[in-house]
């Protein structure tokens, strides 16, 4: 029982990170039709920026303060890099979707290679407040505290994005842009500003996932972190239904849980520790056979 609780909460923590990545991917795809391959690179760059600042801060303040400061810096870098990428590389290729995908592919390779060249290919120790590494007892299971932070952050981001889309003027423009971009433009609204904004939000969420992944994976970051998480985020986006935030959230939870359960029980009873990863791919295959447009089944945002 206690193992099951631990697996559930850990799975939810993993799902939380998938959601943070998938939400940005989904928003960007929904609004602009761009499959952003560089999203994993945003994550890696955000995580490394945050790690870099934490090494510079040395003994300033308490460990919680250092963590918060460096996390905030990582998020800022993630958002700025993403906005710059949109402005400089994506915008000139407006409406040329293939070329946009290709540019993000090239960017993902180049950015990860750059991180690897600058900070080395091996993993770096990511300093987090000691409280996060301690455990709390839930139904007899000793759950590491960071899991709760990941789940909480993802829930806040989910509520925040939905509220932003429903109740703000820019949210309205984004939702309208997803439905019919030509009409919004015809009404004299500059949709392109919404593009940059969506990229910045996506970059910020990805960097957040990067920082949290540093804590989740035992206090370490490595250059390939972004790419490996990105693939599962892609799976989440397809299972959830391209362009749907709620679909992504549900799919992220499902994928995170299935992966954790199957990985654990697979290695425990079958001596096969990648059962979880394979199950997730199988889930994707079944979704496509039964419901090719994904769980949400509609091609829209925030419904």
């Amino acid at each position: 029982m206690s193992t099951f609780v631990l697996l559930t909460i850990t799975g939810l923590g993993l799902g939380a990170m998938y959601f943070l990545i998938a939400s940005g991917l989904s928003l960007i795809y929904g609004l602009m039709g761009v499959l952003n391959f560089a999203h994993g690179a945003f994550l890696t760059v955000g995580a490394y920026s945050s790690w870099w600042l934490s090494t510079q801060l040395g003994g300033v303040g308490s460990d919680v303060l250092r963590f918060l400061l460096s996390a905030a810096f990582g998020l800022l870098v993630g958002a700025v890099v993403a906005a710059l990428v949109e402005l400089v590389l994506i915008r000139p290729l407006y409406q040329r979707h293939i070329e946009q995908v290709l540019v993000t592919v090239g960017l993902s390779l180049a950015m990860v290679a750059w991180v690897q060249a600058t900070w080395g290919p091996t993993e770096r120790v990511y300093e987090a407040p000691s409280w996060l590494a301690r455990t709390t007892e839930v139904f007899g299971a000793r759950v590491p505290n960071d899991r709760f932070v990941e789940i909480g952050v993802a829930a806040v981001v989910l509520v925040g994005i939905v509220a932003f889309l429903r109740y703000t003027r820019y949210g309205l423009i984004i939702r309208a842009g997803v439905e019919n971009r030509a009409m919004v433009t015809a009404l004299g609204i500059d949709v392109r500003r919404a593009f940059t904004l969506v990229f910045a939000i996506g970059g910020l969420a990805a960097a957040l996932a990067g920082v949290l992944s540093g804590v989740y994976f035992g206090g370490s970051i490595d250059p390939d972190r972004g790419t490996s998480l990105l693939i599962f985020a892609f799976i989440v986006v397809v299972i959830g239904g391209l362009g749907s935030i709620m679909g992504s959230a549900v799919a992220a939870v499902l994928v995170g849980l299935v992966q954790q359960y199957a990985n654990y029980y697979g290695s425990e009873y079958l001596d096969f520790s990648v059962l979880g990863d394979l199950s997730v791919v199988l889930m994707l295959a079944i979704t496509l056979l039964v419901r090719p447009s994904g769980l949400a089944g509609k091609w829209s945002v925030a419904h």
Binding site: P92, E99, L102, G106, L109, A110, A113, Q116, A117
Partner: peptide, 22 residues
């Protein structure tokens, strides 16, 4: 450092190519 990573050079070259020689 970046120039010692083939993927950095190839990735950058690729982006330039998509822009200027599609």
């Amino acid at each position: 450092q970046p120039l010692s990573e083939p993927l950095f050079v190839l990735g950058t070259l690729f982006i330039l190519l998509v822009f200027f020689l599609p």
